[in-house]
Amino acid sequence: MKGFTLRQITRMAVLTAVALAIFIAEAQLPPLVPIVPGIKLGLANIITVYALFALGPGQAGMILLARVLLGSLFAGGMTLFYSLGGGVCCYLVMLAVHRLLTRRQIWVCSVLGAMAHNAGQIAVAVALTRTPAVAAYLPVLLVSGILTGLFTGLCAQFLLSRLKGSSPPRTTK
């Protein structure tokens, strides 16, 4: 792995494992809102947001990608396409906004990321089912995305402020 030190690779591996454990534990929960499938807390995104702010975009992207690929192995089926579509959109949006935010506004990053995740998932669902009507879910999912994104974002923000002393500076190469 060119460009990453052993320390960084190890830290990414640990964070990927934590994110994967959260993802799988969350997948065991019953649906939060039975009428509209697909609404979930997205707790694993806490790790992505944490990594983005504490370790930078490169490592956060690697952790997200590894978690999505491994997570869909465990969850099975079509999960990969939805997670990947949502994950990539979420990552790109968070990448774009994270430089505009102070450390007390980290939750904004998560909210916008969650909304992008919903949009990406719906786009993949429309493409896979070839049924544009699936897009009718989007506003409902966006409402849930804003609320759950706020929750996970605040989790990540508190995590970052508690770990401030031990986390490395954002400019590590």
């Binding site: 009428i35 089926g77 079509m78 896979l128 049924t131 009507a133 009718a136």
Partner: peptide, 12 residues
């Protein structure tokens, strides 16, 4: 309101 969607079977 909301269509039933079965993603594994591509059923709507």
């Amino acid at each position: 309101i909301a269509p039933i969607v079965c993603l594994p079977n591509q059923l709507v």
